[in-house]
Design a protein around this nucleic acid. Structure first.
Length: 111
DNA sequence: CTGTTGACGCTCT
DNA sequence: TAGAGCGCCAACA
């Protein structure tokens, strides 16, 4: 478990939540946002501010949009990298950058 | 304080 | 299945 104390509490919770995602499992921004009593945009913000060190520590590539689309494709060279990571995990991604046949984690309010 | 900008989500067409 | 429109909320100039 990495030390998240140097980040804001919300970011720390987001990182901790992402770090808890099992293999071959995908979650969405909205699911994390609701779980942390925040919005999907806030979660996306956290993902944007991730450093190379943090990317190594947590499976950030398992976070996709609600419809299954890998939104990072619209954010630069990190998109194709996420696709490659997902495929390496056994998750099938369509040529249209959409994750298919994946099991989304849905955290209940009492998780 | 105001306007712009998103690694988003939902609904309608 | 895809695209367009609107809402939401925080960061930033």
């Amino acid at each position: 478990m990495a030390d998240f104390s140097r980040f804001s509490q919300f970011k720390a919770r987001v990182l901790a939540t992402i770090a808890a995602i099992p293999e071959c499992r995908v979650t969405t921004y909205g699911a994390i946002g609701r779980h942390l009593n925040g919005t999907a945009r806030q979660v996306a913000k956290v993902l944007v501010t991730l450093t190379a060190e943090e990317s190594k520590g947590i499976p950030w590539f398992r976070v996709v949009a609600a419809n299954g689309v890998v939104s990072s494709m619209n954010a630069g060279p990190v998109g194709p990298r996420q696709i490659k990571r997902l495929r390496a995990e056994g998750v099938s991604v369509t040529p249209k950058n959409r994750v298919e046949d994946f099991k989304v984690i849905v955290w209940e309010p009492g998780f």
